[in-house]
Write a protein that binds this DNA or RNA. Structure first.
Lengths: 345, 345
DNA sequence: CTGTTAGCGCGTTCAG
DNA sequence: CTGAACGCGCTAACAG
């Protein structure tokens, strides 16, 4: 409606020069108290709010850090976003988040948008876009990646040690006496998924258990895919006393399948996840899973970006996830002899 | 590192005037093909990306719509955000989201930030800030509110009919023969919580059931509070065969309590939520709850804002939530005589 | 301490 | 069809 009020209006109204108003706004220089008061009064009266775009243009910084996430509705990244926001709170910087939906092209568009918005720095959460594209933007602004590696920028990536995470799961299960352990992996176009599966297989051998391909299925990290994969696994009839899922969401799906089939957790079958989403504390029973401090990682990323912006040269510390034993895992049930023993061939 | 390349650089390099480059960028006017090609080549070679701040300054629009949400990590609002993003996709506009954390002061700061960024429009998701503050910003830019009312802007608010939602829940339970129905409400500083509780009490009377205050507890919409409230309720010893929760998260918490106490759902006790979070399909058993099409609401809000921006005058359609009967509700169990009947007094 | 001047990068008249 | 000139709102360098 009414034309926006500008710094110039304030200056005129207060009978001072624009620069004076600017100085008061930014505390750039001292101003006589009376002028200051006068100006502040006018600012308040006119409800003046400085135009950030103009400020950005004038001093070459937008005071915003771009965040490339994948899905705004993701519980996993949502928590990280909250961490980033938290880490930026109290500073002059603000997050500008766009999502890539795990599609290279959309991620590229998102990056373009952020560059056009002239973000001062960038935080990348996961994604499938190729390293080259990220290197290109990293040449323009400080870049920190969470949950994905970027070739050529090793110090700017905080990686989850997926291998270590799954390793703890398998050891835990093995110690409980499980020998036939099923596995539901993720889509292997994501590097995480590969690492977790490889970690699973490697640890199996490490504890002297055979890798049983017929007990392994692949989902896409969604609940529905976990439900489906578990269903297939059970229908195949191969005996198994534990089921390892490559992420919590698939474990939720698998949980439903077990419920439908009347299998008790953990009495009949143990179930594990990976990520420790908030809701994993509240599944029935609470889920044993690998904890990732996603919120903290977000904060860490934000802080790192700030220090980079301040000119410090530093590298992201490594991050080791940790097994959280809750109630979805228990001792392997004594094999009931009701099922005819299929002979190995 | 390297100074950012500007439109001017492109112009010089291509041997044309800045205006020509601008025209090509925006398709504002016709340009001879050869010049166009030359310029486009240079743009590509120099990897030029127009500065959005400068564009915004020049033509008075930032092409961003501000979104005031409450928590980035919220499954509920996350889905709405995704819907908004989706609704804006393909247009020139982009969302700029900030969170208010359900605190009036932070919400005000968030609004200030958005106004300073000169967002072209605003979408408000919930929140506790007073109507006056929202009216103030609404005077500056088109405003749409989701999930909250704003006095003076009735056509710009899409409200959930909480009463209707809870009403369906109670009817459903009553039809299943439940007579002693517990209730866990939300913090009544949020209007939603008040409406849902009132709806619960009203419907109870409507179906001829007494309101039993000793069966009602109050949480704060978190899982933990639901867990606690359910625990208190059960410990109090008053008989109940169904438990209505004012949102899904508290139902998740309550579910855990029931599990701990060895109560089967729905055989021993029926459980309901409100919101239909995505994960409600995957609880054990899947939760009967009131569906809110949060994603769609987000899209709707985005589209409305766009039409408002295009000068259309319209109002938000009303929204009626719908009961989704899944498996957490069942017939009221036949009262077992094992418990000594406490005589009414 | 304060006003004046000159851009920041781009869109848009207004003449050619 | 195209270039020159001006302005968007603000900050910074330069004189006073």
């Amino acid at each position: 409606m009414s034309a926006t009020v500008t710094l110039m209006h304030v200056a005129r109204e207060a009978g001072v020069s624009p620069s004076t108003v600017s100085r008061i706004l930014n505390g750039t220089a001292n101003v006589t108290p009376d002028k200051r008061e006068r100006v502040e009064a006018v600012i308040h009266r006119l409800n003046f709010t400085p135009n950030v775009q103009a400020q950005a243009l004038a001093n070459g910084r937008s005071f915003s850090v771009g965040v490339l996430t994948q899905k705004l509705s993701s519980a996993f990244y949502g928590e990280t976003l909250a961490g980033i926001e938290q880490g930026l709170e109290g500073t002059a910087y603000h997050p500008l988040v766009v999502s890539g939906h795990w599609r290279a092209q959309q991620e590229q568009q998102a990056l373009d948008l952020l560059m056009r918005r002239r973000v001062d720095a960038l935080i990348v959460l996961g994604g499938v876009i190729d390293d080259a594209a990220l290197q290109r933007v990293a040449a323009r602004v400080p870049l920190v990646a969470v949950g994905r590696a970027v070739a050529g920028l090793p110090e700017r990536c905080v990686l989850i040690d997926n291998h270590a995470g799954i390793r703890q799961v398998v050891h835990h299960l093995a110690e409980l006496g499980h020998r036939d352990i099923g596995y539901i992996g993720g889509d292997e176009s994501q590097h995480d998924a590969v690492e977790r599966r490889e970690g699973f297989e490697a640890t199996l051998q490490e504890v002297g258990l055979p890798v049983q391909p017929h007990l392994m299925r692949r989902g896409d990290y969604t609940e529905a895919s976990g439900e489906r994969a578990a269903e297939e696994l059970l229908r195949s009839g191969h005996p198994l006393t534990a089921l390892v899922c490559a992420n919590d969401q698939m474990a939720f799906g698998a949980r439903l399948t077990l419920y439908r089939r009347g299998l008790r957790v953990p009495d009949d079958i143990s179930l594990t996840g990976f990520d420790d989403l908030f809701s994993s504390r509240y599944t029935t029973p609470p889920l044993t899973t690998v904890h990732q401090a996603v919120n903290e990682l977000g904060q860490l990323a934000a802080e790192t970006v700030l220090r980079l912006l301040a000119g410090e040269q530093l590298s992201m510390p490594p991050y080791v996830p940790e097994l959280v034993v809750r109630e979805s895992t228990g001792p392997a049930p004594i094999p009931s002899p009701r099922k005819k023993r299929t002979e190995k061939r």
